[in-house]
Design a protein around this nucleic acid. Sequence first.
DNA 1: TTCCTTATTGCAAGTTTTTGCAATAACACA
DNA 2: TGTGTTATTGCAAAAACTTGCAATAAGGAA
Lengths: 143, 143
Amino acid sequence: MSCSQEYTPQLRARGYRMTPQRHAILHVLSHSGKHLSPGEVYAKAQKQVEGLTEATVYRTLEFLAENGLARPSHIGSGHLVYEIANHEHHHLKCRNCGDEMEVEHSLLKTMYQKLESASGYQLTDSHVTFFGLCPDCQKSEDV
Amino acid sequence: MSCSQEYTPQLRARGYRMTPQRHAILHVLSHSGKHLSPGEVYAKAQKQVEGLTEATVYRTLEFLAENGLARPSHIGSGHLVYEIANHEHHHLKCRNCGDEMEVEHSLLKTMYQKLESASGYQLTDSHVTFFGLCPDCQKSEDV
DNA sequence: TTCCTTATTGCAAGTTTTTGCAATAACACA
DNA sequence: TGTGTTATTGCAAAAACTTGCAATAAGGAA
């Protein structure tokens, strides 16, 4: 729930500017605690900034993601959602009921290293969504 | 490069039908060898089927993905691409130059098991895209 | 081969996302 | 505190994607 004001120096240091629009969007993301679609962010942020446009929301979310302040993720089919970037984690989502849980990055660490040495790539992003069946839906599948 | 005719029984068995549209789209996917955006699939398949519409392409790709004949993946920012589902693999993409390579599923197998026992989930889908820096781009970063 | 059921398509209208460009407003510096 | 540079926004139009519905056609059964 950190106040978005703390992000200002981070942006300035890179030659970018803090604006009411960015402030509102960061505020929405950090106070929602979960991931939001661009449309949801727009709906909430619009109440704080007179005349905010959808185009700005899309551009800002992409901008924040590029600069490490927001984390984009692919939940479900084909659409990006965003959340505030405050801790490294991944998502695990149930294909059947849509239930979702977070996964600690530490669980993937060994695999990341294996992947790096096998490929020569240096893995920068640590956010991945895995799909499967949650325990409850596994039970009903058995029936 | 398998001919899409072999898919007919797979669809029939599930109560679905083979149509010229599906045939063309499967043909396009299996002969391209790489992943294609819906727009690219439409452009190619249109030449084979008179009057094919974009709506049909979107619906068909989603349908094929649901039935395991195509594999959707999130390459880059926010848009789905599709490829024929003939071998299990993942993608590794360079954030800097866009270069891309395939990763064998076997590399992730141990991690998948760890994830399953930690979460109770049963992982069904196995396609993930990882992002990082390719060897070449790592060198130029050092400069 | 013909008929019937219903999965699938095309159409057209809607929603979401992207883009170019001119106007605006952060903020570094004097 | 005022001024200039240029990052950022809003606007408007375009592109990409989705959806409901009536017409079509795949393919099982007679």
